[in-house]
Design a protein around this nucleic acid. Sequence first.
DNA 1: GATGAATGAGCGTTCATTCAT
DNA 2: TATGAATGAACGCTCATTCAT
Lengths: 218, 218, 218, 218
Amino acid sequence: MPRPSLPDAPERARGQRDPEATQRALLAAATAEFAEKGLAGARVDEIARRAGVNKQLVYHHFGNKEALYRAALDQVYAGIRVQERALHLADLPPEAAMERLVGFSFDYLLEHPEFVALLNDENRQEAKHLRDSPGLQAMHSPLVELLQETLRRGGEAGVFRTDMDPVNVYISIAGLSYFYFSNNRTLSAIFGRELDGARAVAARRRHVIDFTLRALRP
Amino acid sequence: MPRPSLPDAPERARGQRDPEATQRALLAAATAEFAEKGLAGARVDEIARRAGVNKQLVYHHFGNKEALYRAALDQVYAGIRVQERALHLADLPPEAAMERLVGFSFDYLLEHPEFVALLNDENRQEAKHLRDSPGLQAMHSPLVELLQETLRRGGEAGVFRTDMDPVNVYISIAGLSYFYFSNNRTLSAIFGRELDGARAVAARRRHVIDFTLRALRP
Amino acid sequence: MPRPSLPDAPERARGQRDPEATQRALLAAATAEFAEKGLAGARVDEIARRAGVNKQLVYHHFGNKEALYRAALDQVYAGIRVQERALHLADLPPEAAMERLVGFSFDYLLEHPEFVALLNDENRQEAKHLRDSPGLQAMHSPLVELLQETLRRGGEAGVFRTDMDPVNVYISIAGLSYFYFSNNRTLSAIFGRELDGARAVAARRRHVIDFTLRALRP
Amino acid sequence: MPRPSLPDAPERARGQRDPEATQRALLAAATAEFAEKGLAGARVDEIARRAGVNKQLVYHHFGNKEALYRAALDQVYAGIRVQERALHLADLPPEAAMERLVGFSFDYLLEHPEFVALLNDENRQEAKHLRDSPGLQAMHSPLVELLQETLRRGGEAGVFRTDMDPVNVYISIAGLSYFYFSNNRTLSAIFGRELDGARAVAARRRHVIDFTLRALRP
DNA sequence: GATGAATGAGCGTTCATTCAT
DNA sequence: TATGAATGAACGCTCATTCAT
């Protein structure tokens, strides 16, 4: 939550040509810039500067600012999906599996403030870029199915309720963590309490897991 | 959640003098514009046009775009505080009081999408305007105290746990509703499920209350 | 030459009505503002603020910004003419009279930096306001006639040349002082030498008198 | 002194690339515009129009209006220094050298009204741009040293006084010409005498040389 | 006479984007 | 592929001036 400003791309040898590296550098710079300033506030000049490349390459490789934004958005979604797919909950008993799932949701947001920031801006724009995304299906979180399966196993084991809509449970789990991170600064200001310190974060993590597990009890 | 674009101010008779009405019109127009586009994306010209007044009056009455943004932010916070103070939970038994509190949190966000939108943008800017706000103290939500008192009464009555940090409980209650509204569009897109219809909203409302009450059980 | 920023007008009792005092205050404020910023750079708001009166009074009393500028210009010319007419050179022997005349030219500019500043701006505008001034004749300096008479007396006494055009002599006398004051800052910068200290000013004064008297020797 | 308004730059073939020509055109246009209107009165749009280039190029090449002003100021100083360095006074006997020096000072101002105009504005701004100029040293006029050497030679030859401060003599020589040109219009208006005609200018030139040489006599 | 609100034109500057090399 | 120059459309803001009271 200290939200470290993402570092600029390393200086490439001048005149060197590596189109893929250029694209990677642009995408990383764009993600950082869009996260900090939003689509409207981000500057193409600044993205190019951060990436250490000529501004025209933004247009060459991505077409325009908005397409670059879409690419950055797709990429951050891809990033979380990769990690979600690496969770192996089937090996664990239902309660431990649920704890891992909730914990993962929390930890990912903690470690990826740019994901939260980009999503916030995209929602303010009514998700219009996301809706246009060709790979939208691929963005569907596998967590919903994992959650559904875990709830089913927990139901059979008698440790979880079985009358809950998995999508709403998913939204609740996500929301308990997401809101804490997305609104951390305004909450800190209003409560006069630093919610972004390591101790507060750890306490919140325990609270979220505890709150969820209790809510799911039969 | 249909998020109706806020209507423009009614055309005032030309040449008429009413500075307070002018300021109100500007503030309303600014709230709508900032909610839709964010601070960076909002256009002073457009705000003036929506308010039906000359653009220069923004500067005459508020100083500059950012000060107008701050005024709009202060006003939306004031709006929710007014309604929060009108809640009378002490008259109700603990569980009913909690249900009302959670229900209010949900309903207010449902009816005030501009509050959610402004807060999102403010958080992306690291709450810098809020932190500078002179009346920051007045923005502290009375709900935390109401919640604390309700939890205490529920604890005595044996219906609530007594080991929870009220601030974290508050954040959880707020987050369960807020995330649903703030991220409604991306969630709808990804789940391929309309989460902003009346039926989905009603189901979410029930879920949030149920989820919270169960989590608070002893 | 420390060119002290002219003080603002004293605060008048609010609501008090004294049209002449208002005009005087405006004129003084305008002179200072125009001297500091020029006609283009001066701000009507700032002039009103300095005068401690409402901006509209500028228009009420003077018509517009340019008319106020003309009024200020006329006034500074009137100021120097008043003092020039108070010189009594006929009582003095020619050389002493000439010294007084040159000394006066120097001293007046030293004490009235706003005169120099206004004249510079007016010249950059090709004197267009001055040419429109109705009382232009009244602005003709009596010094030319005084100078002519002094030169004549000196010629008869054998101490001055008699073959010089009085207007050119006048321009030379004025220029020797005026240039020093009008260009003091750039000269100081380029010579790396503070030309606005009391010592430098006194040395310049002696130099100007000496230079002139020698140039006029037969 | 007919002060012909500087002509606009020739129209460049559209789309042609020549950054140096662009900068030269902008600098020439800026010099003319700043000379006519001053820093505050000059318009960036007008400068671009005169230069026949897009307005944005002012910012691309110079940064902002004030930096362009500084560049113009530096350039006009550089212009006079170049010609001053081309004077070879050592070859001439002292009196002829002095006459050439004074004549040059007069002629340069006659031919470069923009130099006078820019300097006037810069002085009204208290030379703040000049003081910030990195190459300030380079702006020191070589004339002071030339003058000093000429005075020394004239002193040895018995034709000049030896007790004069060269800086003050330099200021006097410059002032005798500068004031005539910088204040030509107000002087013309007040004396009701055209001081910018060829005859008046020629008479002034003779007067200035004569006045100076006589003042320097032992 | 005096005030603060209101207006329209315009100014310096920014920005996403395209051009020429 | 890559670069810096160039462009047109705004944008935030300022300013002299006028209106309504």
